Simulated scan of single mutants.
Amino acid sequence: MKILTCPMNGPRNINEFQCFGPVKNDPDPATTSDADWARHLFRVDNSRGVITEWWRHVPSNYFFLAERNATTNEVIRTFTPQDAEARP
Rank of each mutant, 00 (worst) to 15 (best):
T78I: 00
I14R: 01
M1D: 09
R48K: 11
P81H: 03
D28V: 08
T31Y: 12
R77D: 03
V50M: 10
Y62M: 08
G21Y: 00
D83V: 02
Q18I: 03
R77F: 01
R77A: 11
A70P: 01
D45V: 03
A86H: 13
R56A: 06
E67T: 02
V50P: 01
K24S: 02
T80W: 02
M1W: 08
D26Y: 11
F79I: 05
N69Q: 09
L65A: 09
W55Y: 07
S60N: 05
D28A: 11
N25Y: 15
P11Q: 03
N15C: 04
A38C: 05
V58K: 15
T52Y: 02
T78Q: 02
N73L: 00
R39I: 14
E74D: 14
Q82M: 10
I51D: 02
F63M: 14
E85A: 12
F42Y: 11
T80K: 05
G49I: 06
P88L: 13
D45K: 04
V23A: 06
M8Y: 07
I14D: 01
A70E: 15
I3T: 06
H57C: 09
A35K: 12
F63G: 05
M8H: 06
T80M: 12
G49T: 06
T71E: 15
P22D: 13
W54T: 00
E16I: 00
V58T: 09
R43W: 10
T31V: 12
Q18V: 01
H57A: 07
D28K: 11
R12S: 07
D36R: 08
N69I: 02
R43Y: 11
W37M: 15
K2N: 05
T31G: 06
V50Y: 04
E85F: 15
I76Q: 10
G10H: 02
M8S: 10
I51R: 03
Q18D: 09
E53Q: 11
R56V: 13
P81L: 05
S33T: 14
F64I: 03
F17C: 05
V75L: 14
W55V: 00
Q82Y: 12
F17R: 03
L4F: 13
N13Y: 00
N25F: 14
L41R: 09
R87A: 10
P11K: 01
A84D: 15
N69F: 09
F79C: 03
I76D: 06
N13D: 15
C19R: 04
F64S: 03
R39G: 14
A70S: 15
R39P: 00
N25H: 13
R12A: 12
T52M: 06
W37F: 10
I14C: 01
P29T: 13
T72E: 02
I76V: 13
P27F: 10
W54V: 05
K24C: 02
T78H: 00
V58W: 05
A66I: 03
D83I: 05
F20Q: 04
P81C: 04
